[in-house]
Design a protein around this nucleic acid. Structure first.
Lengths: 112, 112
DNA sequence: CAAATATATTATAATATTTAAATATATCTA
DNA sequence: TAGATATATTTAAATATTATAATATATTTG
């Protein structure tokens, strides 16, 4: 079941707006009207993205009067954001020469 | 542009079958008929998922006769898989008492 | 309490993703 | 060269995601 949950986390964060929200929350508590300043989308759309993040248990909030103050709840997000920020210049080296599998020799030259 | 590319990588790997394929390729070269053994989906569906991974530049293959031998190409995948495998027992600690933002005091008790 | 503010929810239409089925292509083998 | 094998592509239908618009709720303030 953990696997499905992880896939669900990935799905949930696979959106530019939600990544942006999470990056901001990784630094700071933010309420929705703070977010309206750096996100160029409607308030109700922001709320929908926040709902998606809440349903995946990635964020939570506390209430200050009519503000809802969101913060990051899930520690995996910190690590995922860090990986997403890293630079990865090169491709992995291809497999060593001629690995062998049950079905084939895997000997051939690489194609494209 | 890098941001969008990262979101695209996330979207592409946000599927249980594609995660599984990547996990296998992180260990080993595999051809499609190898994959037919551990994936319980049709061959053409496997090919479709492989195409998605190729289009995101995450994998590549070389050709051995009629086999196509896939391997992992993108180094970020290694790091992402590692994070996905890690255990994260606890939630992050909530924000310290009473942080302040432009818009509010953020003082209140947490709600749920 | 009425109006204003901050945020959430619902409905809907547009778009994207997914699977399944059918077909196509390339390589090998007899 | 005619299967047979391994894999890919295309099409179509089902489902999911997204943004927008409209409306609802809760809190504060006058």
């Amino acid at each position: 079941m953990k696997h499905l949950n992880r896939v669900n986390i990935l799905k949930t964060i696979s959106h530019p707006v939600r990544i942006r929200i999470l990056e901001e929350l990784a630094n700071d508590v933010k309420c929705v009207s703070d977010m309206e300043e750096f996100l160029e989308i409607s308030q109700s759309n922001i709320s929908q993205h926040l709902a998606a993040l809440r349903h995946a248990d990635l964020i939570d909030y506390f209430v200050d009067g009519r503000l809802r103050c969101y913060f990051l709840k899930s520690p995996i997000i910190i690590d995922l954001l860090e990986v997403l920020k890293k630079d990865y210049p090169d491709d992995l080296p291809g497999p060593e020469c001629c690995p062998v599998s049950r079905k084939g020799t895997y000997a051939g030259e690489r194609n494209r």
